[in-house]
Design a protein around this nucleic acid. Structure first.
Lengths: 234, 234
DNA sequence: TTAATAGTGTCTGTAAGACAATATATC
DNA sequence: GATATATTGTCTTACAGACACTATTAA
């Protein structure tokens, strides 16, 4: 420890932002990947990310949004900070910190640029850097929040039916949910509200009513648990 | 955007770590503050923090632990990353990122160095930089986790009684809890285990049995809610 | 014995799961 | 009407809160 050293005598680590953008395509969770246009790993697909530009970005969330705009032409519906991975080994170029974000988009509302694509999360393994770790944390986060918040609702378009919302929760949580209990909870908690407009007829059977999220921003259930039998603890 | 610019041509932001260390003194939550030995705010008390030292610190958590050792002689029992505050305005010296941590210690097990002191959280207002924001997030975090994890247990010494554990939860959550329900939950969830050793007699009434946390690390309740009446949502 | 605090038993209310019953669409 | 899916009703069960009751200590 050299307390006399001025603070700027320490070499400043690299500071970047990486974003895990999740969306739902054909009822399956996908993740945005972009082709790298520089070394290292030039040409391979990784999570979208980039350096903070001190001149343009007011904060790191703005960095995340700028990176998504520039590298994938994506505007997100929801974004939240995930975790900061900061150590001497994650990037060969030196001590590096990556502020990671989780973002949710509706796949129908984006038109990706050339070098970007959505990949099923089940197939996005073995990513460069520590991106597998970051992606894993994003999936943990959305699963966790699915059990007590409206987050999975952001994967759908603005108006949706309750059966489709239930399917999204089931997809994210990885379990089947009881339809009656699901409806009761989602309505009792005032997570959704009915929308007058009639929906497209799905093809067979009684048509479902359309709903939308009651709030534009993320709502939670007061920690009421969405997982079945979770009260037993585990 | 100038994609031809090499990454190192961007000026690297400042990267620091700030730590909110919480402890319990006379049944009241306190926060560690240290006197600054440099500008800005030389001489005033702030959250302990410091620059990442790329040469010594393998990761940012190690930075946090080193800062606490050096500035306050504190070894923590539990530490977790809180949030990263990263923007152009939080520090007058320039675009700056602070990776913040929440740490929990037992006040009896530390002997603070000269320039450090514990301050009741109720009195720690109007801190320099954005430290009030960071402190607020730490308090939100421990309150949130109190509702579904063993985190508040780390505020106590290794062995404790269930009534004292209940008091800690009540202190952190800010509500009275039902003793029977509390014991049931904490025992059913296998959060604690009885310890054979007899405790100090508290002074009056039937002496309480001693328990310790069943796991050395943070356990959660499977999102079972600790707050009363929380099922109603809010 | 009394006072004080620790710990248990039991009743009640609420909400989740199961699942039967009803509603509304197409063919 | 037959079929399919959406939506509601209701029974059962598990758990949290309330609170009275029992247990164990010192004085």
């Amino acid at each position: 420890m050299n307390e006399n050293m001025a603070k700027n005598d320490y070499e400043r680590p690299i500071l970047t932002v990486d974003v895990v953008v999740l969306t739902l395509i054909k009822e399956e969770l996908h993740m945005l990947m972009v082709r790298r246009n520089r070394e290292p790993f030039l040409g391979t697909y990784t999570l979208p990310g980039g350096f903070v530009h001190a001149q343009e970005d007011v904060d790191s969330e703005e960095t995340a949004r700028r990176v998504l705009r520039d590298k994938a032409s994506v505007e997100v519906r929801h974004i939240e900070q995930l975790y900061t991975f900061a150590n001497s080994t994650r990037d060969k170029r030196g001590w590096s910190a990556s502020i990671s974000y989780l973002a949710i988009v509706n796949a129908d509302e984006v038109s990706l640029s050339e070098d970007a694509k959505f990949v099923p999360v089940s197939e996005s393994v073995g990513l460069p850097f520590d991106h597998s770790l970051i992606a894993g944390m994003a999936l943990s986060r959305i699963r966790d929040k699915a059990s007590y918040s409206s987050l999975p609702g952001f994967l759908l378009s603005e108006n949706f039916t309750l059966p489709s919302l239930q399917k999204v929760y089931e997809q994210v949580l990885g379990v089947k949910l009881n339809a009656a209990a699901f409806r009761r909870k989602v309505v009792d908690q005032e997570l959704v509200e009915e929308v007058s407009e009639a929906g497209e007829y799905a093809g067979r059977g009684r048509p479902a009513k359309l709903y939308k999220l009651k709030e534009r921003s993320l709502q939670d259930f007061g920690r009421v648990v969405m997982l079945p039998d979770s009260r037993r603890g585990g």
